[in-house]
Design a binder for these strands. Sequence first.
DNA 1: CCCATGACTGATT
DNA 2: TAATCAGCCATGG
Length: 106
Amino acid sequence: MKRASASRSAIYAAVRRIPIGRVCSYGRVARAAGLPGQARQVGYALAALDDLDVPWHRVVASDGRITLPGEAGDRQRALLRAEGIEVIDGRVELRRFLFEEASLPG
DNA sequence: CCCATGACTGATT
DNA sequence: TAATCAGCCATGG
């Protein structure tokens, strides 16, 4: 198993702060983790995730879309719906479910 | 070191 | 709303 870098740990910490029933975008998570402009790294970190305590499914693209490929996307949609989040046509209504967390690392 | 890839984003058209 | 494009950067070959 790969060891998590400091940046990845910060990313995971930020994702863990997203409350149930809310979502956050990759870019916002990156900022909250102290890595502004590195949204792709968030996706990369989540792709390599093996820590089940991280609610990765609450992270969507900046326009609310589920950009996760293949069956994993279906899994994410199911998990979101299970938390009461509406997913219409592969996307979440950010106006209702976006969680805006502080840009604080750790 | 170079190159390709990717769970992205913001601006522009 | 959708399509394009440039910028972003860790990871692996």
